[in-house]
Simulated scan of single mutants.
Amino acid sequence: MKKSNLKKNLAFIIPIAAILFFIVFKLCTMDISGATLKYDLNDNPDMVKVLTEAKNDSKALIINGNNDDLNYTWTYDKGKITDTKKTNLEIKPYTKYKKNIVKTLGTSNITVFTYNKDINLNGSPRLTFKEVNTKGNAYLFELKNGKVSYVKDTVSNDNDITFDVTKTDNIYILASGVNSKTLTSVKKKAVSLKAENKKEKEKIEKDTKDKKEESKKTAKKSSSKKVSKASNDKKKKVSKSKIKKSKGSPINLDEQKVDKKTTLSCTLTVECRDILDNKDKLKDGKEKNVPKNGYIYGPRKVTFYDGENVYDVLEREMRNSGIPFDADGYTEYSSAYVRGINNLYEFDCGKSSGWLYYVNGSRPSFGCSRYVLNDGDNIHWEFDVK
């Protein structure tokens, strides 16, 4: 009799226990807060709706994608979506000139890719490439006009590589195992992609033309509007402004000689006070990057080695102070170009806004990595809102 009751009880208890276990498991594994939205590009989600929901509800957004051997994830943190325009986040592998890239960088641990031409970043996303063949630190490079230029360092975790996306116009290379000599050379100046002959070199240059510059030229040609007299008068006023031109002479990077035995000093200031009077132009979400007094760094006396340039000092002090810093390693002007400091980027406060530098109160007419410093110089970086 007792055994019969026990069997009946077990028959009743076991299904209930299984159901309870399933409920507890689901509660433990589900995102109860709903703070993160997750989508897969292969499901063709309506990106306008996805971005709108994430922005309006202040949610983080994760979008997974894959194309051939490329597995990648886009991540938008809470509050990082600035608009909800239509976008295509597909990434495509680029296999052309892979052998040339390997020869140039001296490593076979590379991933070459391009962004979709209809991409719209809609803010400041991070991109993670998964299951990438890595060897040590990985770096992001850009291929344009037949030359490889350094973009930025990345964060490597096992076989995953992550970086903030700020440029999407051309061909990009993730590379690890690059020897220090090659890396130093590319960081200072863009290097030509190695080619078998002159004909191949010309073909590479043609196939890798800077898309951003090409689009500007096309837009300029298609525009038939004439500059009005008022516009010309405005240009004359600007040319006669009180901005001083630097008396310093530019130096080519390959001519730079640094004497690490001789230490000098200068004063460095980085500020964005101009934004305080133009907050109505500032992009949404950027207010938190603007200090109350407008000063991001300094004025502070810092040391440098004899022969170092303005860029050397800025890059080192920003890195040592933990201040976010983003620069193109090379431009058509044979100099580094500072795009962002403290997450304040060009165009963040109007179409003509961006970073300018002055030395001893004068504004040089050449790039910051071509200005070799003297002892006692005063460097002033200003976020200019024109």
Rank of each mutant, 00 (worst) to 15 (best):
G361M: 07
D284Y: 04
E196D: 15
T75C: 08
Q256R: 09
E315H: 10
R273V: 13
D384F: 10
P93K: 00
T267Q: 09
T166I: 14
S176E: 03
D158W: 08
K292L: 12
A138Y: 02
S156I: 15
I341R: 00
K55L: 03
K261S: 14
K117H: 10
Y358K: 13
N66D: 13
R316T: 12
N100M: 09
D280C: 03
D83W: 05
S335Y: 05
L27R: 09
S185L: 07
G136K: 00
D43R: 10
T184Y: 07
I173A: 01
S265I: 09
F163V: 12
T154A: 03
L282V: 10
D69H: 12
S176H: 02
M30K: 13
N66P: 08
V165K: 00
V112R: 00
M30I: 15
T52A: 10
T168D: 02
S223N: 15
V385F: 01
T269P: 03
S176N: 06
S33T: 15
T29Y: 07
P93A: 01
F12E: 09
T29F: 04
N116T: 07
D284S: 09
G146D: 05
K301E: 10
N5Q: 15
G329H: 02
E53P: 12
D69K: 11
T182G: 08
Y172W: 04
G79E: 05
N9M: 14
I119L: 06
E202R: 11
D326R: 08
K2D: 11
S149Q: 04
V270G: 02
N374Y: 05
S249F: 10
K281S: 08
V310P: 03
K78T: 14
I13A: 05
N5R: 14
Y39E: 14
K351S: 15
K7E: 11
R339K: 15
K226S: 07
L20Q: 06
G361E: 05
N342E: 06
N42H: 07
N56T: 15
K237D: 10
L143P: 01
N145D: 08
K221Y: 11
D274Q: 13
L268H: 00
G294F: 04
V385S: 00
V186L: 05
M1Q: 15
N157F: 11
E308Q: 06
D40V: 10
K245Q: 13
S4W: 13
K2G: 12
E196M: 12
I32E: 05
I13G: 04
T262M: 06
K247Y: 12
V310G: 03
N293T: 04
K242S: 15
K288S: 13
K144M: 07
T114K: 09
G322D: 07
K26T: 14
E196T: 13
D375W: 02
I81A: 02
T162F: 00
K130H: 14
G285H: 01
N374A: 08
N342A: 06
N44V: 10
S222M: 12
R370V: 06
E142G: 10
N342K: 02
K96C: 10
K386V: 13
G361L: 07
S265A: 06
V132C: 09
T182M: 06
K351G: 15
K211F: 04
A336D: 08
N9I: 14
K86W: 08
D348I: 04
V112Q: 01
K181H: 12
L314K: 00
E214I: 05
K181Q: 14
M47H: 06
T218R: 09
K301H: 03
E214Y: 03
K235Y: 11
L253E: 09
L264C: 12
T267F: 06
L121H: 03
